Structure formats: C-alpha cells, structure tokens
Amino acid sequence: MMARIRKSMEEKDQGFTLIELLVVMIIIGILAAIAVPVFLSQRAKARLTSAKSDASVISKELAAYYVDGSSALSVSGATAGGTWTVATTAATPVTVTTGKLSPGNVVTAGSGTTTGTYCVLVSTSTSGDGNVTVTSQGLTVNSPSATTCTAA
C-alpha cells in the first residue's frame, strides 16, 4: 500500500485532466438533450389523460342520471382543479351530483338534453394540450382551440 502511495506521489497523479472532464460533460449534455423532450411529451400525455378521465367520470354520472331522470342538465366546473357540478336547467336548478376535477382541468362546456343525450368538454386549461369531448356516442380528443360541445 505504501509503495503505491509513494509511486503516485512520484508521478504527481493528482486527478482527472481537463480533457477527461470536458468529455464527460459533453456526454451528459447529449444524454440530457435526448431525455428532456421525451420527458416533456410524457407530461403532456399525462395531462391529456387526466382530462379524459375527468370527462369520462362526468359522462358516466350523466348516463347514470338518464337511467331514471329526464330533465335537461348543465355541467359546470370553471375553476382549474376545482369541482364540477351537474344540475338541472329548471328555473330553480337542483344539483344532481358533484365531483372533483384533476389539477389543471376545467369543464369548458357540458349539457344533457331531455332525450338522454349529453356532451361534456374538459380542457387542460394551464397547458393547452387539448380538449376532451365525451358525448353519448363516445369520447374524442379535440384540438386545443375547440370550445363548444353539442349533445347529439
């Protein structure tokens, strides 16, 4: 052991060279340039998936209401990450059900007709990743600029 220390001191072996450190930094930079865009697209997909989940939950509540109910409904939830509310559209609205929105999502539009058809539009308000529309016919992912919802 002492011989190795003595040999190291004689050769003045004191650490890494500047070239070695620069090569390592370049490699780390290349890996970061590859990983960051992949990570950002995964976050956008996650936000869109949370909007799909919120729209699906609200549409299931509307469908459950129309098993026995027949009133026209409105859906609201304009606060990002707040709550959504389904209420009748009568002169004196009656709240049918409420629930919690995922963080960053808002209910842009939502309605149900007396014939049992409905439409819910949930958008990812803070990110602009897109809007999700669920109608009584199914789910669609819209462009970020879609702002209307029609119960077909």
Rank of each mutant, 00 (worst) to 15 (best):
G77W: 05
T79R: 12
T79D: 11
T79A: 15
T79V: 15
A80C: 09
A80M: 08
G81E: 06
G81S: 05
G81V: 09
G81M: 08
G81A: 10
G82C: 07
G82H: 13
W84V: 06
W84T: 04
T85A: 08
T85I: 09
V86N: 07
V86S: 02
A87Y: 06
A87H: 09
A87Q: 15
A87W: 09
A87L: 03
T88R: 14
T88G: 05
T89D: 00
T89S: 04
A91Q: 07
T92C: 03
P93S: 05
P93E: 01
T95K: 13
T95C: 06
V96D: 13
T97Y: 13
T97C: 13
T97F: 09
T97D: 09
T98W: 15
T98Y: 13
T98K: 12
G99T: 11
K100Y: 03
K100N: 15
L101R: 14
S102P: 09
S102N: 11
P103F: 03
G104V: 00
G104F: 04
V106R: 12
V106T: 14
V106H: 07
V107W: 11
T108W: 08
T108P: 03
T108C: 04
T108A: 14
A109W: 06
A109S: 14
A109I: 09
A109G: 07
G110P: 07
G110H: 09
G110D: 11
S111K: 09
S111F: 00
S111P: 01
G112N: 00
T113D: 04
T113Y: 01
T114C: 00
T115H: 10
T115C: 02
T115R: 15
G116A: 05
G116D: 00
T117K: 13
T117V: 12
T117Q: 06
T117I: 13
Y118L: 02
Y118T: 00
C119F: 07
C119D: 05
V120M: 07
L121T: 10
V122H: 06
S123R: 15
S123N: 15
T124H: 08
T124V: 12
S125G: 10
S125M: 04
T126S: 08
T126I: 05
G128L: 05
D129G: 09
D129P: 03
D129C: 07
D129E: 12
D129R: 08
G130C: 03
G130Q: 06
N131Y: 01
N131H: 02
V132I: 04
V132H: 06
T133Q: 11
T133Y: 00
V134A: 00
T135V: 00
S136I: 00
S136Q: 10
Q137P: 03
Q137A: 13
G138M: 01
G138V: 01
G138L: 03
L139P: 04
L139G: 01
L139C: 01
T140R: 11
